[in-house]
């Protein structure tokens, strides 16, 4: 019984100290609140039966934080690897009396960056992301940059023929 009350008192005092501490609830650095990972998608089946080729960017978002769907921007460097418009899930719609409707992502989301050429030159590429998000009811992060690396191995080739190859140079 004594131990029970002592433990209870300890827990309550710890809780009180945590509630009273001014820095107990420091917002996370955006790199920790919004953690992106990039993965090469090579010939995986899509919902329509065709093959998917591109880069999947998966975001893991901490509880209490969200990303704005409409404010994500992607760029691949060097730009010799061409990507099409990002394929974003619809997200959760929120309504704001001033901004109107917008969509946000919480928890986890995967964004697909499709290759628009049928052959991707092997090499290391950097995916440059610009994102905006908020810690619910406290602060919002002004546009912040993030960078990921993707490696396209030698021999990688898109084979589904869904995207016609882009011919460069003078016509034969």
């Amino acid at each position: 019984m004594t131990r029970f009350f002592a433990a209870l008192a300890g827990l309550c005092l710890a809780g009180a100290a945590s509630a009273a501490s001014p820095l107990a609830d420091e917002p996370l650095d955006p790199g920790k609140a919004f953690r992106p990972h990039a993965r090469l998608v090579a010939g995986e089946p899509s919902a329509t039966g065709s093959e998917r080729h591109g880069i999947d960017v998966e975001y893991r978002i901490e509880p209490g934080y969200y990303l704005y769907r409409g404010r994500l921007r992607f760029e691949v460097s060097p730009p010799t690897l061409l990507i099409g418009p990002p394929e974003l899930p619809p997200g959760t719609e929120i309504e704001d009396e001033f901004v109107g409707k917008s969509a946000i992502f919480r928890d986890r989301v995967t964004i697909h960056l499709p290759f628009v050429v049928s052959v991707a030159k092997p090499g290391r590429y950097r995916v440059k992301i610009t994102a905006q998000g908020c810690a619910e009811g406290r602060i919002c992060y002004a546009a912040f940059p993030q960078e990921l690396e993707v490696n396209i191995p030698p021999g990688y080739r898109v084979t589904d023929g869904a995207s016609p190859p882009v011919h460069r140079g003078l016509p034969r």
Partner: peptide, 13 residues
């Protein structure tokens, strides 16, 4: 003491 601490902690929280 435990009960007092519990009350104090809860009210502070």
């Amino acid at each position: 003491i435990g009960l007092l601490a519990a009350l104090a902690g809860t009210s502070l929280f």
